[in-house]
Design a protein around this nucleic acid. Structure first.
Lengths: 199, 199
DNA sequence: ACAATAACCGGATAGCTCATCCGCTTGTGT
DNA sequence: ACACAAGCGGATGAGCTATCCGGTTATTGT
């Protein structure tokens, strides 16, 4: 998993040099742990990052907050994809392809699912990205509704839960290899899309 | 939530009188906790059941084991329903109605979802019930396949994960009231069934 | 009825994880 | 160079888990 580095203009916090260094170390370690599927324990993160425990807790009050920070590049990538999708002209194809890409991203990057599954965010940056993303989800679905190709009984508010459901279904009894998990998730999404499409 | 009492002929263990009494007390407390959504802590259960900690751990080595014991009546009820469904003559209607009932049961009885979500069982009784149930799921789906009304791309092995996905989708951002949650779950199952059905 | 004995009880306790507090250090602006 | 704010880190206590073992209770055979 690697994303293009995007420099964000920090509106609020001009972090001190050592603080920034530690922040990066912590996120680095966190990313490694998330990737290998280890459940995140903040004290362990501190040790692995060669940083005091309090430093970790200062930056990230809970493991979820750390996961959110780790998820930010992935969320940004999704936003970019959603923008591309909205630029497409076939509402159904745009929606479908975006959702396939989303599912694949969520399997590949294990920091994403928990962020979508939890209702509120610990980090403002994540909250903002999620909100934008959900908005774009909504537009994509609205377009499909307007074109009469998507079941109007399924609303914008349903889309995120349904996608979480697909992810969950594909990982409850997890397939051994990552490619298998992607394939399974795609299959389940196909079923969902079939159910979503009007005929 | 209440089920008819079904006396099971214990093949292996004729429990001593006091042991049986404690077992019931523990399960009773456990059921109450599960119903009110409190995460199960075995030491708390012991205190609430007015029983030693070791007694609880002896009967149920892990919280999951206790949950499984609590889920048994619910599982038995599902088996009964599945048998009824298999007695029906329209493959699609049987499958559909059974799945609706299953979803409703799983929302109503919070001990059920974790049992289906975890791959292996701590209690032999639960393992047996789950196995039977999955087998009947399979038959129901097979019949639908044979009648050409269900997408052959979705196999028996997919059915449980997909149902778990529906459950998850309906509870990620949980609706306040239980009836609302049931309604949501039914809606999501409708989408799944639409995607499952061949046209 | 009464041992003998096997099954069972229960709580004290050791090991472990979590998260906070506070004395000290480091970076930053003047 | 100095002052001071910002940040550091680990010792520490609170809370939870699960085991061990001395004592108790039911059961079985006579």
């Amino acid at each position: 998993m690697s994303y293009p580095v995007i420099v964000v203009s920090m509106t609020a916090a001009p972090l001190r040099k050592d603080a920034a260094r530690n922040w990066h170390r912590i996120v680095e370690v966190g990313r490694r742990l998330v990737e290998e599927g280890t459940p995140i324990q903040l004290n362990d993160v501190a040790r692995a990052a060669e940083v005091g425990v309090a430093t970790v807790y200062r930056h990230f009050p809970t493991p979820e907050a750390l996961v959110e920070a780790i998820a930010v590049p992935g969320l940004e990538a999704q936003v970019a994809r959603a923008e591309e999708a909205l630029a497409g002209d076939d509402p159904w194809v745009s929606l479908r392809d975006f959702l396939y890409a989303a599912v694949e991203a969520q399997i590949t990057d294990p920091s994403l699912p928990p962020v979508f599954a939890s209702a509120e965010s610990a980090l403002p940056r994540t909250a903002e990205l999620k909100e934008r993303l959900v908005g774009m989800f909504g537009q994509l679905l609205e377009r499909a509704h307007a074109a009469g190709v998507a079941d109007p009984a399924v609303t914008t508010a349903d889309l995120v839960p349904l996608m979480c459901g697909v992810m969950f279904a594909a990982t409850v009894h997890p397939a051994p290899s990552a490619p298998d998990r992607v394939a399974t998730a795609r299959r389940y999404l196909t079923v969902l899309l079939d159910g979503l499409r009007t005929r």
